[in-house]
Write a protein that binds this DNA or RNA. Structure first.
Lengths: 241, 241
DNA sequence: TTACATATAAATGTCTGACATAGCTATGAT
DNA sequence: ATCATAGCTATGTCAGACATTTATATGTAA
């Protein structure tokens, strides 16, 4: 038997201590033993229970923190707490990726348009009555500040994506939208722009209600391009002023 | 001034030691000071340079490992090495998300179809001559094993996504495809299936060459649904046998 | 010469135990 | 009532020793 082809038998399952902590807690969190908001055992408890030093235990916990599964809080009543697992868990990775690969604002908006358009079409075909009710409720909300209006906009798009009845698309749309708003922040809407956005949102709602994918897509395109243009205008002003 | 509204002034930027290590190295990696494959300074060097204990340094490194930026290798010629930043960096997060939210195989395939269809349409409109040449080269490759055929299939879809000229879509398509193949592994293709797939791939290539988005989308749908059906057949057999 | 065993080197991995710090809570003085 | 303070409980940090891993170099025997 050649040296090169000799199989490299490894001892049965000899993981490092820190990795053991990481994998074990990850599994517990994924399988729901620890739920959102739950506090993990303290470092000391964990290390004593597992027979692993505090240092190695902390390394495992730090890796969990890296992938976004837990949050660490120092001080009295502090500890490690299980995060909610939502689209946020891919936003950082996507951000990192697009930053290093130097993706442009236009590419991001184009991708958003492409994906959110197909999503709104599916929403028009698959929406439930509850989805409609939720959209209607959000549309009829009175808002008193721009912040509330942004929130309302975010919520509406979220329900639309949800109405597609496809979780994968839902989370991807959410992630892209979050990334756009966190990277390029919110534009300063003028009163007349608010009116325009509200009309467009109502058009999206109507066409979804009428199960009309063509119209829904048109309205969505209009909405997204309006945002894009507003953003570019603001940029324009800034670079000039 | 009320207690509740009293601003909580924090000392100017007092980060924890481990977080300092994490952020600093992250910035260096993102900005390209450390490039793909580069070895970071050893723990000891880092901790001595920064005046931070080895334990805290290791925690920061472990967090970097969590987000997928570096890989740790033990032993002689070991160390910490900078990873390639590609779609892989979001695959784990997406996997985690879909696992906990219990997204189905069908939802994943449907999302893939939706996104890869719009991507192939854009490819048909935006493809460059280089893209065509790359596709042609892959299509004409002789393959001797199923593994090589899988690789070939993967490469073709990758070039198609690239031809859309949109990095965001490219990475999202890649991430979804990787997730599908790593989760549901590869189906056992029969000889006649290979022929079918090759014909379909050629149809995708032709329609992109002809700048025909409609035909390109049709071919892509055919390709994806064929894969889906083959997979379901295999599952069927397994549950019966 | 070749194959195999062994030593070495250079990195990460682990452990212990002490002390520092953060931040909510309760207590007591004004 | 308000403010300062001490205490509690968690994480944060440190120093220093020793263990483990693994490629490479070295030596040894067939």
């Amino acid at each position: 038997m050649n040296k090169k082809t000799k199989p490299n038998f490894k001892p049965y399952k000899k993981r490092s201590a820190h990795n053991y902590v990481f994998e074990m807690l990850k599994d517990y969190i994924i399988s729901g033993v620890y739920k959102v908001g739950d506090q993990l055992p303290t470092e000391i408890e964990l290390s004593q229970t597992l027979g692993i030093s505090r240092a190695a235990t902390r390394e495992g916990l730090r890796e969990l923190e890296g992938i976004g599964l837990i949050t660490t809080v120092q001080g009295y009543k502090g500890g490690r707490f299980v995060n909610k697992i939502d689209s946020g868990i891919i936003v950082n990775g996507l951000d990192l990726l697009l930053q290093t690969q130097k993706a442009s604002f236009d590419e991001l908006m184009e991708a958003r348009k492409a994906i959110e358009c197909i999503t709104v079409r599916m929403a028009a075909l698959n929406r439930s009555e509850e989805n409609l009710a939720a959209m209607s409720k959000v549309l009829n909300l009175r808002v008193d500040s721009k912040e509330e209006f942004y929130k309302k906009t975010f919520d509406l798009h979220e329900i639309v994506a949800l109405a597609s009845q496809n979780k994968v698309l839902f989370y991807i749309v959410q992630a892209i939208r979050k990334l756009i708003f966190q990277t390029y922040s919110n534009i300063a809407l003028e009163e007349n722009n608010i009116d325009l956005v509200m009309k467009t949102h109502y058009a999206i709602y109507s066409s979804i209600k009428n199960r009309d994918p063509e119209e829904a897509e048109k309205a969505m395109i209009f909405d997204i391009e309006a945002y894009r243009n507003l953003y570019l205008e603001v940029i324009e002003k800034h670079t000039k002023g």
